[in-house]
Design a protein around this nucleic acid. Structure first.
Length: 314
DNA sequence: AATCTCTGCAACCGCGGGTCA
DNA sequence: ATGACCCGCGGTTGCAGAGAT
């Protein structure tokens, strides 16, 4: 281990090293506390955690441990994490080793502030993919999924919530009027015609980042296409869309229900203040919306990007 | 200056899917 | 077909530092 100090120049972790050096003394003090305080959660059913062994160290990694891990991976390559604690003598569980490598020690990891471009990409990918951070991270190879996830949770979510609130305040009423009008029209169509043909009006537009269902976005090919479309669109105008809202194509009624979902991840979807005080939406419209969306869960966390764009988020 | 609260982020936990005997 | 094992993922925790009171 000590025989390979040069390894620190081979991996791009100078910041990691410095930061750890700064905290080293504090760490030593805290690790025992962490070990004592951490709740044991193994009384639940299922496979016991891999780290539920006596003598396994937890908490922040020391530079020495990093060197040992990097040395081993330099020699044997990543993978076979199970063997690492045994072969290196590290008192860490395999999972901890893998996490340390993939999130911190792995070469090519970019640290520091996210650029505007990265931020935009994350926002759009999150809208497309939801909280599938690993998938999002494949589009930002220099960032780890953990980094992206943290950045989303600490910066972007708040930022988007604020923008969303502003949008809701200013546009909710106008949109509600439009929605009611459209729902009425749809109802009238449904009552007067057996087969309303409104496709030409309500067809979702891929290039304007309008999504009819999360199932579509879940397809990797489609995601790439949407993303490419977005990249191109960003340079030109975003005005190609006829609507500023997410379009939910409703085959049953022929109506397009426009809405902006809250970004909240809790699932509680706390009602907006304006939402609760306004007249209720027509039942048929709500029904359509509810029935057409496979589940609330699927939509949760997705937001209306065109609105965000127009509100000047970027 | 002391204390409290908030924020950022590294690390941990448990679950689910894939593999293999 | 089944169970054990391993790995990857997303959610969550908890510490350190910054800012507010």
């Amino acid at each position: 281990m000590a025989g390979k100090p040069l390894l620190w120049t081979l991996v791009s972790v100078p910041q990691a090293c410095g930061k750890i050096e700064e905290k080293k003394n504090i760490q030593e003090r805290h690790i025992s506390g962490i070990l004592l305080l951490r709740k044991k959660k193994t009384d639940k059913m299922g496979r016991p955690p891999c780290c539920d062994k006596t003598g396994v160290k937890k908490g922040p990694w020391t530079p020495e441990e990093d060197i040992i891990l990097v040395s081993y991976i330099q020699e044997h390559g990543p993978g076979n994490w199970r063997a690492i604690p045994t072969n290196t003598g590290l008192r860490r569980c395999s999972k901890s080793c893998r996490l340390r490598w993939t999130n911190y020690l792995r070469p090519g990891i970019k640290r520091g502030n996210f650029t505007d471009q990265e931020e935009k990409l994350i926002v759009h990918l999150q809208a497309l993919l939801g909280n599938r951070w690993a998938a999002i991270a494949t589009y930002l190879p220099e960032r780890t999924d953990n980094d992206i996830k943290n950045y989303w949770n600490t910066h972007l979510k708040k930022k988007l919530n604020k923008v969303q609130n502003d949008i809701d305040k200013g546009q909710w009423e106008r949109r509600l009027q439009t929605d009611i009008k459209m729902a009425k029209q749809a109802l009238a169509d449904a009552l007067s015609l057996d087969k309303p043909n409104c496709e030409s009006e309500v067809k979702p537009e891929i290039n304007s980042v309008s999504y009819s269902s999360s199932a579509y976005a879940a397809n990797a090919e489609n995601i790439s296409r949407l993303l490419e479309g977005w990249m191109k669109e960003k340079s030109s105008s975003t005005q190609c869309s006829t609507s500023n809202t997410m379009a939910v194509d409703s085959p049953s009624s022929g109506a397009t229900v426009s809405f902006a979902k809250p970004v909240s991840r809790s699932g509680a979807s706390t009602p907006e203040p304006s939402e609760t005080s306004l007249n209720p939406l027509p039942f048929s419209m709500l029904e359509t919306w509810l029935l057409d969306e496979n589940s609330e869960q699927e939509q949760d966390g997705f937001l209306d990007l065109s609105l965000v764009d127009n509100a000047g988020f970027f």
